[in-house]
């Protein structure tokens, strides 16, 4: 198997992880209209809840993953309800909300590290023999990651197009005051958004942990700006844009790692981020009046 195909395979897996995380971030960004810098900590919660569920509660990995996903959603919901929502209701400007989430990221990451320690952990997943799919060969975990991502994207699509909640979320993302004026219960939609965003962050964290094998509290956070790059590339609040952005960034990161050096693969994501901001700050799918 050529290096090209190998890299392409890795690129697809990275894209899958990124898509999960980017969609969650973009959803919340679009609905609330401010960035959550604590998102990297949510990834860490997903990783470690799942780790504890598997290693201490002896759940099978899939069940542990479901537990980790939902538990992270609850963390996000609590953080929003207790801390961010009061600031928003008081009319705190976007500037200070960003600083609040920046502070939250410091608190939550250190909380994770205080609970689970500084060392590296890993899930207990049987390595198994590689599975060949066409020209690619993947581990079972990698196939799981891609499958989870694809299923989740379909679920998000159905959520946004077929449910009242999803339509309300899109309405808020387009124009929050108008959405409120048309009788949407923006507070409960916001809370649901945080819960779903947290779940997606949790899933992103778990799949990232499966992909990197070893992880610790800050693993997700170093990935944060790569997620941002995918979100901005897609256009803020553009869910499908975030998916496309994730695929592009995932491939770019892996091919840059192949061509240059894996120590600098994330720099490629930064380069894409800079190019997007310089050339097309509204993203590939612009939102009216948002960029």
């Amino acid at each position: 198997m050529s290096l090209f195909l190998l890299t392409l395979g890795f690129g697809i897996v990275t894209s899958a992880v990124l898509a999960l995380a980017a969609v969650g971030l973009s959803l919340q960004f679009g609905v609330t209209n401010y960035v959550n810098f604590a998102y990297g900590a949510f990834l860490a919660f997903g990783m470690f809840f799942t780790y504890t569920a598997q290693s201490a509660l002896h759940m099978p990995i899939v069940l542990a993953g479901v537990f980790g996903t939902l538990a992270t959603g609850v963390v996000a919901l609590v953080v929003d309800t207790l801390i961010l929502e009061p600031f928003v209701r008081r009319g705190t400007s976007g500037f200070f909300l960003l600083i609040v989430t920046f502070g939250l990221s410091l608190i939550l990451l250190n909380l994770v590290q205080a609970i689970w320690g500084v060392g590296f952990d890993q899930y207990n997943v049987a390595a198994g023999s590689p599975i060949t799919l066409g020209p690619f060969s993947f581990t079972a975990a990698q196939i799981g990651v891609v499958a989870v991502a694809v299923l989740t994207m379909v679920a998000v699509h159905l959520l946004l197009t077929r449910t009242t909640l999803g339509r309300a979320m899109r309405a808020m993302s387009d124009n929050a005051p108008l959405a409120r004026a048309t009788g949407i219960d923006t507070r409960s939609v916001t809370r649901w958004t945080w819960f779903i965003s947290g779940c997606l962050a949790g899933l992103g964290g778990i799949t990232l942990a499966l992909n990197t094998v070893e992880f610790q509290a800050f693993t997700g956070n170093t990935f944060l700006f790569v997620i941002f790059a995918a979100v901005i590339l897609g256009g803020i609040g553009q869910i499908y844009g975030a998916m496309i952005g994730a695929v592009i960034i995932g491939l770019v990161v892996n091919f840059a790692g192949m061509v240059i050096s894996s120590a600098y693969d994330l720099d490629a994501a930064f380069a894409v981020l800079v190019l997007v901001l310089l050339l097309r700050p509204q993203g590939i799918i612009p939102t009216l009046g948002k960029a």
Binding site: Y34, V35, F37, G94, F95, L98, F102, T222, L224, F225, F228, A229, I232, A263, Y264, L266, D267, F270, L273, V274, L277, L278, P281, A291
Partner: peptide, 25 residues
Amino acid sequence: IALRRLRSDYLAIVTLAAGSIVYGV
């Protein structure tokens, strides 16, 4: 890069990202 007329949250993201990059390099 960061001071072009972008939303202030983009500015924050770019600075944070640039910091990670410099740190890594």
